[in-house]
Design a binder for these strands. Structure first.
Lengths: 385, 385
DNA sequence: CCGCGATTGGAAAGCGCTTTCCCGCATCCC
DNA sequence: GGGATGCGGGAAAGCGCTTTCCAATCGCGG
């Protein structure tokens, strides 16, 4: 590997004055300057304090985060691992998480993992090296067992080292988790479709093995079982993307033109499904009904508007960030200013919060479920055979 | 004493071994351990090196970023300021930026500013305090002049302090910038619409004063001027959001039912416009044509597919990140592995790169333009009066 | 009027790491 | 063969800050 810094560094000096310089300029000791300019338990004479502050701002003093981190043995950085910020599902989570981080004065380092297990491990290591106070993992673990295990191990290591981790999706029994009620959502979708009389149903699934996929599928099957056990389900698998949904749906239509409904395991896939149906000349919902999952913002503006299972992504992001930070600072300002979107998440199914024991060693896992809800729009209608 | 952290801190210790401990365990000096475990110019005996590495991994040594930052007087953190990660426009930029950051081994701290000028300033201060190596500002500056000036001043300060800044959108003559060709894009939209015979055109604009808005509008006017000077344009303003577009379009339709085309200054607004038109029973494109701006991923899947002006958001994110980091490390490994999306951005209009003088003092501003392109889809058609 | 606790400012010891010197030794060339 | 040259390793001086002690000062009751 190439050397680290090839620049002859003509002027590497960063930032302005140091605390020491401020102290000197103000005629006080380093200690006093520190106490004035950063939250300290110790009080300082108000006049002196004002003076120091004045000098500091005149000198454009900017505290040195890394130095503080070193001295305090703690940082105000948290990591956020997402598969892809550009996927609306994750960007919503990120937005929620960031809102809470903002309230808590935390800086969020976002890592795009592209679902690459190695990248994930690497990022965790890097976040660990930065002494991130916590890591929030969004999205279910890698499909491959070995990779998932490695991830899990790395996270446990991190926790043992004193870090906090909350995962949206199950990472194993050691990691606190926020779980969307995928099973219930899948079930709701099934009941809806079955209720409309659909019996020949195509399912557009994501990568097999993905926990999210498995759960949604499981719920769907269960729901069908209880409401229409004469139904036929055929599945086609694709990437968890728009194109994946498109291709899977095309295959579905080729092989089983008789289907009257499509259940796509994510809205992105549903968008692809809609496109494939349109292309095949199958009218939605007259000839084929479509149900998605996630309730991305765009769903209501598709044509027809997509019936889908709502997941409170943004709320989950908020909640997860809250869990991750409240775990180590029980003090809770009631600074809840979040808007309506928060509604669902503000009624966690578990007492949560300060209940479990506190630190690494004797920790008890915390799990909070996030409800899902079927949103019926225009893409579903009665089956016609 | 009620310290800061209300926990009685039973075990505040983070991370495992320190370099010193590794050195001791390996029977070498701190210096040697450091040289082995981190990129150093100095070479170390291969066997010794292997031994140290072995010990380090056995002890689960994880380097201490903040300490390194302190000692090296530099970090591997960069900041990314966006209005809202949950807006696809920005999440695409973020994704692009992160890809490059990844290649360069940088960690990206993302700050959601919600277009709040104070928040923006605050975040810059925080990023500065963390000694972020660079800050990438996405999105045009605040509408309010005072706020814009403050932002600019803060950024200049940061640069003077040795930081790098690249802005997507113009932040003033001191800041390197990446500028989407909004004017050209607006012009292209105008020519297209005029060519189809539209003369009564509604424009759905974003907040007045936003540079982006002004430019797109300017281009549109110019284009109309040169191709259809008998055209009537009426504008309605709204937030730069889907709902803003929806409301603005409703107003447009109420006040000027005669319009045969709508030009929305962003795709999000166009989505709202489409919804308003649908609701009003105006068929697109038969009765009314719609043109958007940005070319979000979803455009092709709307009904009808949206004619829009493509902006290479992801490419801009990549390019911006590249500028921001390449400025201070002239060494360029050819590690370009980026995919097709990169195409457009790899042909910058300006020689750029190592051309300008290097550091803070004698710096010359670098500006790179990012081309825009009209993408004709199904939402536009000939005018019928 | 003196002693004592309370208060507030300062000196200094790190936090974990990088990096400059410096030193010993093997290599090299004439 | 002898000084010049390199090369690999170690000691130690910080990087900028927090925080523990310690010392000085002040207020007060006895």
């Amino acid at each position: 590997m190439p050397t680290h810094r090839s620049t002859p560094s003509p002027a590497p000096r960063r930032g302005g004055a140091t605390l020491q310089q401020v102290a000197d300029a103000a005629g006080v000791s380093l200690a006093t300057a520190s106490r004035v300019l950063n939250g300290s338990t110790r009080t300082v004479n108000p006049e002196l304090s004002a003076h120091v502050k004045e000098v500091a701002s005149r000198l454009r003093y900017v505290s040195h985060g890394p130095a503080q981190a070193l001295a305090r043995a703690t940082t105000s950085l948290v990591g956020l691992l997402v598969h892809d910020v550009n996927d609306p599902y994750f960007s919503a989570i990120a937005a929620g998480a960031m809102r809470v981080a903002r309230e808590r004065d935390l800086l969020v380092m976002v890592a795009n993992t592209y679902r690459d297990a190695d990248l994930e491990l690497d990022y965790i290591a890097r976040l660990d090296a930065q002494r991130a106070r916590a890591i929030l993992v969004a999205g279910s673990p890698p499909v491959e067992a070995a990779a998932a295990a490695a991830l899990r191990e790395r996270l446990v290591d991190y926790v043992l080292g004193g870090g906090r981790v909350v995962s949206i999706g199950d990472q194993g029994p050691e990691i606190d988790a926020l779980l969307p009620e995928n099973v219930e959502g899948g079930r709701a979708a099934a009941l809806h479709l079955a209720g409309l009389g659909h019996r020949e149903i195509g399912v557009v699934t994501g990568p097999a093995g993905l926990v999210t996929v498995a759960e949604r599928l499981e719920g769907f099957s269960a729901g069908l079982m209880e409401s229409a056990d004469d139904a036929h389900v055929i599945a086609q698998q694709g990437d968890f993307t728009r194109d994946g949904g498109y291709r899977a749906t095309r295959r579905l239509l080729e092989q089983h033109p008789e289907i009257t409904a499509v259940f796509a395991l994510s809205d992105l896939m549903a968008v692809g499904a809609l496109a494939a149906l349109r292309e095949a000349g199958r009218r939605v919902p007259d000839e084929v009904s479509v149900v998605g999952f996630d309730d991305l913002a765009i769903c209501a503006d598709l044509t027809p508007a997509l019936t889908t299972v709502r997941v409170d992504t943004e709320g989950m992001g908020e909640q997860a960030m809250r869990m991750v930070v409240e775990a180590d600072s029980p003090d809770d300002d009631g600074g809840s200013e979040s808007a309506g979107a928060d509604g669902a998440s503000s009624a966690p199914d578990v007492a949560g919060d300060g209940s479990a024991t506190d630190d690494a060693a004797g920790q008890r896992r915390r799990i909070i479920k996030s409800p899902t809800e079927l949103i019926v729009r225009g893409s579903t209608g009665p089956a016609v055979s």
